[in-house]
């Protein structure tokens, strides 16, 4: 296409594209290359410190098994949160796209995107109020059930998962919703006229056709959750040490930016590796 564009069209395309690409350059590429540079230094190159090039930061990851353990813990967290979000979000998207119509759909949609409009810290701390022992959830369950219930989810992996699923659920709902919307109702009617029951229609028609949306949502969730640090820190307390919190510590508490940068790039490589490994399956599902 671009090869056949006339000169003036090409100039116009360049003019239209350049703001976005300049911004992406400035906002993504420059900081990322600075970080890549830092990750090969022995100390931060400012504040009058001595520094030289080194591979120690990457070696530290290999020599300290804790990092790999934490990375695996974070990947597991990512898988659990992604799986739960898809399991909860897809049915929700299905109802929004195929069952409810008109105004009630708008209202339900608003409820889905509401989390996007609130500050993430507020969101997490409100979960803290709900989840802590004697908190809203604990007291309610205690009041309803006749026996004595001591429900304290706060500072547990469960709390972290709840908080993360809540934060990221809208992504998978929105992407699945768009994919489901694109499925013509007459396809479902045609399958019914051929004798297919609900489960068959879901398995043979709806899931394959909505797969691109589900996968897009899953990737959008998995990537940030593996590197998440705020939810683990606030909702996980002392047990909330994950790969993401370790990276955050390097930058905020220990002030070892080079190590933090190196750990970040290892995370990036691992996430890209996982997505690359999954891509044949993804391609099969979306074709």
């Amino acid at each position: 296409m671009s090869g056949s564009l006339a000169r003036t069209d090409r100039l116009r395309a360049l003019a239209l594209l350049s703001p976005a690409y300049l911004w992406l350059m400035a906002a993504v590429f420059l900081p990322l290359s600075a970080m890549a540079f830092f990750s090969f230094l022995s100390d931060v190159p400012f504040g009058g410190r001595d520094w030289q090039f080194t591979l120690d930061n990457y070696r530290a990851f290999l020599e300290t098994p804790t990092y790999a353990t934490l990375l695996w813990k974070s990947v597991k967290l990512g898988l659990i949160v992604t799986a739960l979000s898809v399991l909860i979000g897809f049915p929700c998207a299905y109802v929004l796209a195929k069952v409810v119509r008109g105004r009630s759909r708008e209202a339900l949609f608003l409820l889905v995107i509401l989390p996007f409009w609130s500050n993430s810290l507020v969101r997490i701390f409100s979960w803290a109020i709900v989840l802590r022992g004697n908190g809203i959830l604990g007291s309610t369950v205690d009041a309803i059930l006749p026996w004595d219930v001591r429900l304290n989810l706060m500072f547990s992996p469960t709390a972290i998962v709840i908080g993360l699923v809540h934060s990221y659920l809208p992504y998978v709902i929105l992407t699945s919703y768009l994919a489901l919307q694109a499925i013509d109702d007459s396809l479902i009617e045609a399958a019914r006229s051929l004798g297919a029951r609900r489960r068959t229609i879901l398995r043979r028609l709806i899931l394959p056709l909505a797969a691109p949306g589900i996968i897009a949502g899953a990737v959008l969730i998995f990537v940030p959750v593996v590197g998440s640090f705020m939810e683990p820190r606030i909702l996980g307390g002392r047990r909330g040490t994950y790969y993401g919190t370790v990276i955050e510590d390097q930058f905020v508490a220990v002030f070892n930016w080079p190590l933090g940068a190196a750990l970040s790039f290892i995370l990036l490589a691992v996430v890209l590796g996982i997505l690359a490994l999954a891509s044949p399956a993804i391609r099969r599902a979306t074709l």
Binding site: S186, E189, A190, R192, S193, L194, G195, T200, R204, P208
Partner: peptide, 30 residues
């Protein structure tokens, strides 16, 4: 699904994720 009808839709409603043979064989598969 139990009325044993065959229906042709205005937009044909062919299943885009299946081949021609897959589309035609769907009712038999079910």
């Amino acid at each position: 699904e139990a009325r044993e009808i065959g229906m042709v839709f205005q937009n044909y409603a062919l299943f885009p994720n299946m081949t021609v043979a897959g589309n035609v064989g769907f009712g038999l598969e079910v």
